[in-house]
Design a protein around this nucleic acid. Structure first.
Lengths: 343, 343
DNA sequence: CTTCTCTTCGTAATCGATTTCAAATCATCG
DNA sequence: CGATGATTTGAAATCGATTACGAAGAGAAG
């Protein structure tokens, strides 16, 4: 832990620290022989550069932050892998921040990252935008992933939530003849939530079905929300025949509630949702889902971010929208093996 | 991105930067009134401290690194949550490094973290110890989690793999009468692997069964290893009646192979494994597992690490061993709801 | 040989905060 | 009132690397 510095190397060889810095940082004008000797002693003394000092001077930390709302959700895990893989391929580190869908935590992390001098952030925000204000003020490079934040204009990489929701809903109506479809959505402050409801609505309209607001509940993207609301509407008199869960976790809650009511899925309640449950689906292909390309989303977002960080002057804000893959399985009422609907 | 510094605040108030630093960094001797004025202007100028400069001087970055081998595995995800939660509770950030079970990647990350001046690391190593050598040389604080590395002595927090494997194997023998139990283990270089085989062996010996090495295969902790080997032994003449998969991913591979062979689990092949599949089990409680307290492991490891970083002089190396919870479900052949075996 | 250019290298400033040491201020008291 | 000790504050060094600027040396051209 003592720490060999460029001064030690310089003293050892009788040259100046400046020369050592130049030699080690690559291709400045340094005589070949000097460079060789410096590289040699650096290795011999077991020198490791101090990135803090380097970053302080260069005003670049080669570190980005990723703010996501739930590490236990495979969707975000895959986003994270995409971000991390891409970042490290370009020599960047990633600091992970897990907000648990709590805007307060998000705010704290944002401030912290500002102090830590990260070079940029990939953010899937659970707030309404206010939490990200400091980033805007400081002019910090940011790319939004999965969730847009209306207030600000930043690059973003998102899934086509409206389209996915439309296709799923349409499937329930067209193929299975359902007319009363409950929706358990995430918070209305989050873009994916609003868009999924919009997609649902478009499908209803297209098939001449009424939009009944009592069937639509906005809450949060967690299992217990799905459980709570499903418990509720499943015990009612005229329960809906189908349910569109806002994401995979909500869907799990719905399943649990149905089990407790002794209801079978899909016989008593058809169910479709967003985002696949990777491992679970490998073993028990059950949920009919709109599966988003999570890894790609993370990877693309990082690429956009690194372009900005790299100093490329990009005026306009870029918006990448990726189509989800619709995977028809059993929970909607289809037989396994049934033909996959084209997106 | 301009950056307000303590010099700006100092100039504004006609005091010295030193005083500003003292005032902002808490409770050094600064007159109350001065402190108030400084805090005020700091807020007014929207000052954010530069942690890089701070870390450079204090030789502490308030950042730790977590090296894990597979972020898609819920076990490690939970370890990660435990680490991150605990670290951030004490004001530390966590840099996540995902090695994909590749020792080369691990080596690269280790070097990088050394340069980044992290204050310490929580490591679940996929190597044989050589990759961690630089950490030892530099005297970097390290706590091993999940996997011990024989070569070095560091604090560690691990699960009782031997005991868990023993109990699972014993269950297969005692309750279900299996005599030929295949084992698909991870790499022998990884401690959990060797220990799980040892536990398996102890159970065999206790029940007077022969240890047949052709039933035991060591490979790696991934799905495709389970799939490949299971495909192999399931097509043989006298296939084993039961299988102990080294971890959850291997187990998934075994299931997939069994499905392709038209074999049913547990009727045609009983299966037990280590580490639960959180979400999958919520929906489809299927695997009989030794479930390790992953979150706790991460949290404890971080606590031990922070103690070291905090400068507490602890001579001896601490070893925390946590017992897994044995959850009996269907894959071993038990009926659901059957009584839980005591560890 | 002088002058000029080009390469190579050293001096010193710099990034922003912390900290040591000493100076300045203030209060207290004989 | 001056001495003594406690509080506050400032000047300057420091962490380790980068870099602007200029000097020294080598080689080329006249």
């Amino acid at each position: 832990m003592k720490g060999v510095t460029i001064y030690d190397i310089a003293k050892e060889l009788g040259v100046s620290p400046a020369t050592v810095s130049r030699a080690l940082s690559g291709s400045d004008k340094v005589k070949e022989e000097t460079r060789r000797k410096i590289a040699e002693t650096a290795k011999r003394l077991n020198y490791t550069p101090n990135y803090l000092a380097r970053s302080l001077k260069k005003k670049q930390s080669y570190t980005i932050a990723l703010i996501i709302s739930d590490v236990t959700n495979p969707f975000f895990t895959n986003v994270a892998r995409g971000v991390e893989d891409t970042a490290s391929r370009f020599g960047f580190n990633t600091i992970f921040c897990n907000t648990d869908e709590d805007p307060d935590k998000e705010r704290v992390y944002v401030d912290l990252m500002l102090k830590k001098m990260v070079d940029g952030l990939v953010v899937s925000s659970c707030g309404d935008g206010r939490t990200l204000l400091p980033l805007k003020e400081k002019g910090m490079p940011v790319v939004l992933v999965d969730r847009k934040v209306g207030k600000f204009h930043w690059d973003c990489v998102v899934g086509d939530s409206e389209g996915g929701a439309y296709t799923l809903t349409r499937h329930l109506i067209e193929v299975h003849g359902h007319k009363e479809i409950a929706v358990l959505a995430g918070p209305l402050t989050i873009s994916t939530s609003a868009e999924r409801i919009a997609g649902y609505k478009r499908a209803l309209i297209e098939f001449g079905l009424p939009f009944r607001s009592e069937l639509v509940t906005a809450g949060y993207y967690k299992e217990d929300f799905g459980y709570r609301i499903a418990k509720d509407f499943l015990s009612g008199e005229k329960r809906p025949q189908a349910c569109f869960a806002g994401n995979n976790f909500i869907a799990i809650g719905v399943v649990r509630a149905a089990q407790e009511h002794g209801l079978r899925i899909p016989e008593d309640l058809a169910l479709v949702t967003f985002d696949d449950l990777e491992l679970a689906s490998l073993l028990f292909p059950f949920f009919t889902v709109a599966k988003q390309p999570a890894y790609t989303m993370g990877s693309l977002a990082t690429q956009l971010l690194l372009e900005r960080i790299g100093g490329e002057k990009i005026k306009e804000n870029r918006e990448v929208v990726l189509k989800p893959e619709i995977i028809i399985r059993r929970s909607c009422g289809c037989e396994p093996g049934k033909q996959v609907l084209s997106g």
